[in-house]
Amino acid sequence: MSFLYVIRRRLILLLLVVIGVTIITFAISHMIPGDPARLMAGDRATPEIVQSMRTRLGLDQPLHLQYLNYVGSLLQGDLGTSIRTGRPVADDLVRFFPATIELAAVALFFSVLAGVPLGVASAVYRNRWIDQVSRTISVTGISTPAFWLGLLLIMLFYGRLDWLPSSGRLGGDVTAPPFVTGMLLIDTLLAGDLAAFRSALSHILLPAFTLGFVHLGVVTRQIRSSMLEVLQEDYVRTAKAGGLSRRQIIFGHALRNALIPSVTMLGLAFGDLLYGAVLTETVFAWPGMGNYVVQSIHALDFPAIMGFTVVASIAYVLINLLVDLTYMLLDPQIRSVG
């Protein structure tokens, strides 16, 4: 199984995904009740105004033509114009994407920071109290509705303690740094504005913790089960028989091998976090893609919904491709097998 094979397979899939996603979202968006022309014209508009709007949007053309028009402009990087914001969807996505990446990255950091030690401890001390505690934490994470946890945190850290802000990305007392990456934690540092960095950090803590906690369970479970598997492998037993200390075995051999399948997991987790951010962003009014898509759904802004879905699905396939390639690099065994 060569790199080229994997890349080719993924690219074919990418093509299929783009076709499939556009057809399906297009179909859904035309099932959605709500005449976009009416929506754009405003409540009190007269029928004549609505009709002229319809013509302008090309909505009086047959469906298949509308679809071809959409795909045609999609190929030129044009995702259409948002009904809600009146701006090109592509521009909107570029504006909101970095906020979501930043949130997902910090959340992933949280969940790995806590999840890997928990998972390892859980596997090593299998069925002992530490395992039970770690499993309880991870099941709690998986079973917690993110939107509710977010609200509880706001209630506590904002409402009662007044330590952390409840919404947004930046405080009112600082100015936004110039746009470089769009990720405020980085941009504020690049601008050398420590006060703004602190403000950005204080804003991201609660949403990132919420998102990270919900994901913590996934990480812990994954580490635990791959660690358990590795601990039962022959070479670990051999090492044990050979008189290596427990610590040497765990950290020298087992952990490294257990982490390899986790790379896949990390990549996929990042994908999940990007989508999972939808609810968290809604609760914390985090101006990212998730918030954007929820508001678009409420406004039945289907160019925006389609744009988001297409971009997110492509991103998902690309992340998968990257994960596969990394995996092959890390694990020579798999490379030679194919």
Binding site: I32, P33, G34, R38, L39, D43, I297, H298, A299, L300
Partner: peptide
């Protein structure tokens, strides 16, 4: 309904 849908049904 979402307000957009509600408007449509009203109409």
């Amino acid at each position: 309904y979402a307000y957009a849908t509600m408007r449509d049904r009203l109409d």
